[in-house]
Design a protein around this nucleic acid. Structure first.
Length: 334
DNA sequence: ATTCCACGGGAAAGCATGGACC
DNA sequence: GGTCCATGCTTTCCCGTGGAAT
């Protein structure tokens, strides 16, 4: 069934990107100065999740590397590396060994100094989920570093600029902005067809089945590929060459759930406990939640810390806050 | 009006850890 | 080895704000 599992991974970058010609042209245009050894324009990619932002950014960077011999690059997911220190660390990894830098005991200023001393070839940094950065000093740092170009990725344009410092907003005002729309149904089907062609046995799925997946994914390519992956895995385990309707039916919720399960694994025991408590309730009030938590956990943290955890869980889309103030309840997202 | 929760920003304390020095 | 210091990250403490209930 599965010929090449890499094709079904989230990180896979296809040889061609479909239905994003306009966006690709703009992005390539912004990056073009790099081919003349000049810094690229700063580019923003905005759009909903699964609309191809990250994929296109990496794709464009790959293309650029084919044309430019000397080019440094790094991809930073700000969701994971959300402090100034960690993001800087990630960036420095691309320009040299970092074994002498330690999470504790090396000051952020030392990282910054090393970055400013950089005098290698043009350096393109992709900052994904840039709105997850806890403070925007990092953007300022990079902006002021000669030889570094930025591709910045976020969901919502207005929200991002609302949270940025005013100085930064005015400096970034002139940068290029590319807006992505959700994929249409037939576009998703085309994307899935490619993945099937490259990664699965021939005719593993019918066109109708792909359309069914695309429909369930509601314009989100990541979800669509997740469902496909899940279906292929089940077929592989059952050792069959075709995916039947039942398998597909099961794969839809599972594919959707996969992203969440990934996030749950990263939680601390306390955070997971909170998640479990919310999961067991239809909807739970904050006070009730704190009570349950204190009962179930050996060494309960303070309410304030619990609130921090809850914010984090909400950030990961693992739970949902509804209402405000007194009427606030927590529940699992729909 | 007043009280009651809940929220979340910010300061400070606590924690874990590598490096310098003895 | 042992001690102390510096640092980033987490947790706690303090507190102002604001809506809901009384």
């Amino acid at each position: 069934m599965i010929q090449d599992a890499r094709v079904l991974q989230d990180e896979f970058i296809p040889k061609e990107v479909e239905h994003r010609d306009q966006e690709m042209n703009t992005l390539a245009g912004a990056l073009d100065p790099v081919t003349r050894n000049e810094p690229a324009e700063t580019v923003f990619l905005f759009g909903p999740s699964g609309s191809g932002k990250t994929c296109l950014a990496r794709f464009a960077l790959d293309r650029l590397r084919e044309a430019v011999i000397d080019l440094n690059h790094q991809y930073v997911n700000c969701w994971q590396d959300y402090t100034r220190f960690r993001a800087l660390y990630r960036i420095l990894e691309a320009i040299g060994p970092t074994t002498d830098i330690h999470r504790q005991s090396t000051p952020t200023d030392a990282l910054l100094e090393r970055l400013h001393n950089y005098d290698g070839p043009e350096f393109v940094v992709i900052l994904d989920e840039v709105d997850q950065l806890h403070d925007d000093d990092l953007l300022y740092d990079l902006y002021r570093t000669a030889g570094i170009s930025m591709i910045l990725i976020a969901n919502r344009e207005e929200e991002l600029f609302a949270q940025l410092d005013n100085r930064l907003v005015s400096r970034l005002h002139a940068s290029r902005r590319i807006r992505f729309e959700k994929y249409e149904l037939d576009e998703l089907v085309a994307i899935l067809e490619d993945r099937v062609r490259w990664g699965l046995a021939e005719d593993a799925l019918t066109r109708d089945q792909l359309a069914c997946i695309a429909d369930a994914a509601a314009g989100d390519a990541r979800v669509a590929i997740g469902i496909l992956r899940s279906a292929a895995r089940q077929a592989e385990e059952a050792d069959v060459e075709e995916i039947d309707f039942d398998t597909l039916h099961d794969a839809i919720p599972e594919g959707k759930r996969e992203v969440q399960q990934k996030n749950i694994k990263q939680l601390t025991p306390h955070q997971r406990e909170l998640y479990e408590i919310v999961r067991k309730h239809e909807a739970i009030s904050p006070g009730e939640l704190y009570d349950h938590y204190r009962e179930r956990v050996e060494d309960p943290k303070t309410d304030r810390t619990v609130r921090n955890h809850l914010s984090k869980l909400a950030h990961y889309n693992l739970l949902e806050k509804t209402g405000d103030g007194r009427g606030r309840t927590y529940k699992l997202p729909a």
